[in-house]
Design a protein around this nucleic acid. Structure first.
Lengths: 250, 250
DNA sequence: CGGAGGGTTGAGATTCATCAACGCGTGTGG
DNA sequence: CCACACGCGTTGATGAATCTCAACCCTCCG
């Protein structure tokens, strides 16, 4: 009987499984297999027929597109508990992305056939899939936006803001979840520019020490807030928020 | 009793309604309303709570993100029969995108509440939603890819290739579905660069006259083919395809 | 005839990628 | 214990590519 590792059963339960009955979950996991991979291993090759959904149990994974020249564009960066390839299963045809382990990793793969069937059997599961894919799509929109009409500084700022909100608005400190090179590529800039941007950040009251980001106050990142990110902020209706660049610039 | 306009009932039936029973479709359309808008009208404002799914009955519509500076990044360009905002409904929170009519347009709006309920009631409809959102997500991935690791020439080439495949591999001619300015922005380049790229295209055997694109032969666009786009091509297994840049460059 | 909008063309400025060198911490092997 | 190499990140100089700005052409339309 397949069972999820304990750390993924509590509050960090993957959204894919959220709200499912125990029976439904068990059915889903019946044919799941777990794999272990070293760093930089290709789990799915762009152009291949996708075989299932991947859940990261341990390590770091990314999805990416690459061209003949070997250049790579990161689509998503996954941490423990994240899943990928849900959307790809429902595109007919070969996978538009590769999946690659960044570090030593352990992943669970649920076969495509199971997922597709389960969508029809359990409407709650279908809803989970829709939510997840929509969420990914939202991120993709932000990436598109970023690369079109944001400066590198703004991209990094927005990325920091997201991490800050994830960490909770009270914590004035968070750590980069991935190597700088990796984050830089995800943001569509080179490692060099990323490094230079980090220096600019210091002038804005954000100190960067290795992979630890420390902010002077909880509003240092408000410069980078967005009409739709704003909603995630605890203090959006507080007076303080009025001081945000976003509101004062008008 | 709401009924879809006849032109959307045949082979061009929106994917949203594909394969639904008549009863299911009627239920979905019960509370649908149609609206008429002049050009450049904002149907949904970025940051607002989304009210439903929009189906384009007539005209051209786009989804976009914009910043305080007034710069805009097009996310999708919609023609008659296309839908938008499906994904946004399932992101909790305000809409990350605006929806804007490009020309005089007629659209049908299906309220959020109806869509969300119907996903639970009709698993086939849920599957439709998943497919659509996944498809949008796939396009978004291509956009991200394009803006990171493709030259403007390659972006236009790929866009042309898509239009060519839509038109059928046999037709050596197709037309730009939108104003050049609009397409340019969608591709993340300025109208000027777009214009200059079109001149380069001529050297590759693609003539551009106003909004009509004519290719010397069916393989002129193979330069721009992709490991996952390849699958859409009729001739992928034919010998001719071996001549594609993609294969010969190695 | 004149104006407006879309598209094109040219010249210049800006910005980021590229390339190369260096610093620094870590792990390994002598 | 030290020497060394390696990976990652940083810094600086350079160049290329695209955006910006401006002028112009063309068509459509009043």
């Amino acid at each position: 009987m397949h069972k999820l590792p304990p750390q993924l059963l509590g509050s960090k339960r993957p959204q894919l499984f959220s709200g499912l009955t125990e029976a439904s979950l068990q059915k889903l996991l019946t044919y799941a297999v777990t794999q272990e991979h070293g760093p930089n291993h290709i789990l799915v090759q762009q152009g291949d027929i996708p075989d299932g959904v991947y859940l990261v149990l341990e390590g770091e994974v990314r999805t990416l597109r690459s061209n003949e020249g070997g250049e790579e564009a990161s689509i998503r960066l996954l941490e423990v508990g994240d899943t990928c390839m849900e959307a790809v299963l429902f595109m007919s045809g070969p996978s538009p992305i590769s999946v690659q382990s960044l570090t030593q990793s352990r992943v669970m793969m649920i076969p495509a056939r199971i997922i597709k069937q389960h969508v029809l059997d359990d409407s709650h599961f279908a809803l989970n899939i829709i939510s997840i894919v929509s969420h990914h799509y939202r991120n993709a929109m932000h990436q598109i936006d970023a690369m079109n009409i944001k400066t590198p500084l703004q991209r990094v700022g927005y990325y920091f803001l997201e991490k800050h909100l994830e960490a909770g608005h009270d914590s004035l400190e968070f750590t980069l979840p991935f190597r700088k090179q990796t984050v830089a590529n995800y943001l569509g800039i080179t490692a060099e520019t990323f490094s230079r941007v980090l220096k600019q950040m210091r002038d804005l009251g954000i100190s960067v020490e290795n992979d630890t980001i420390r902010m002077k106050d909880a509003f240092s990142l408000c410069h980078f807030c967005d009409s739709d990110t704003e909603a995630l902020c605890d203090r959006k209706d507080k007076d303080n928020c009025k001081h945000c660049i976003m509101h004062s610039k008008g």
